[in-house]
Design a protein around this nucleic acid. Sequence first.
DNA 1: CTTGCACCTTAGAATCATTCCAATTTGTTG
DNA 2: CAACAAATTGGAATGATTCTAAGGTGCAAG
Lengths: 146, 146
Amino acid sequence: MATATQAPRHPAGLAQKLADSGLRSTPQRELVYDVLLTKRDHPTADEVFARVKPELPGISLATVYNCLETLVQCDLVRAVNFERGPTRYCPNLRPHAHFHDEVTGQTHDVDLPETLFAKLKSELPPGFDANAVEITFRGKAQSSAN
Amino acid sequence: MATATQAPRHPAGLAQKLADSGLRSTPQRELVYDVLLTKRDHPTADEVFARVKPELPGISLATVYNCLETLVQCDLVRAVNFERGPTRYCPNLRPHAHFHDEVTGQTHDVDLPETLFAKLKSELPPGFDANAVEITFRGKAQSSAN
DNA sequence: CTTGCACCTTAGAATCATTCCAATTTGTTG
DNA sequence: CAACAAATTGGAATGATTCTAAGGTGCAAG
Ligand SMILES: [Mn+2]
Ligand SMILES: [Mn+2]
Ligand SMILES: [Zn+2]
Ligand SMILES: [Zn+2]
């Protein structure tokens, strides 16, 4: 056995998806994506920057914004915006809702049955054709996990 | 018959709700609220400012922000935030969802059965207690109304 | 009535997140 | 290697919102 540098958490999907869009896989893009997969707490660009900096001290905030934008473009990550304030990033691609804990400020993923999303779309009045639905809950969560 | 100045669209609810919070009813607050009720297209603070200026030339943008904040505090208006960008304001207090037309950029209110909101909350895993749910659709709407 | 205040409004400065720019750096191709 | 395109970088520029300090306003005592 040889090359076992650090084990990337992204099974090559990244390089592939990037290539599909005619983009290159770079250390910055890999690290940013890796950071999102490692701690899925919906960090802001600044937070991603802070987590990435130690690994790649030369990286700039502008690049973090660029990488995040690229990942969103490639459908590897979703940008999340409830309540004015910095955009947050989510690598969970399953259809899911977000629960915003008003006490801790934390954002949790909540899986919902796909049928519910379908049901919601079916409730739209005629003439409205939705290709996406976003659901955000606000409230308090029992301090069980995360 | 006498006083028929311009017919306020807000049946006194405003002055009352403000008073309930120990706040005063002012020309600025009344106008801002009136503007929101008159054209319910989810305007931004800047847009509200533009609509209010002709009626009250001396009003400042800061005051518009202040008034909007006050109305939100009093539960007379809701602040809406999908997609990073200026906050929008909605005077529709019924539980409803928002449909964001990706072509025109317009935001439409979509009434949904209250039972659906309940159903959504009931789908939350144990430990999560939501006091609000926000639903946003994205897609294309037939250019029928608005 | 006057004064005392608490509440409000206002203009402009300050913040904060994000975008833009121009100058390198890197990677790939011929 | 040379040429060129793609990517990164630091700093300037933007845009929305918030903050500050300095007046107004209107009612409650005296
Ligand atoms: Mn951010
Ligand atoms: Mn605004
Ligand atoms: Zn998520
Ligand atoms: Zn609305």
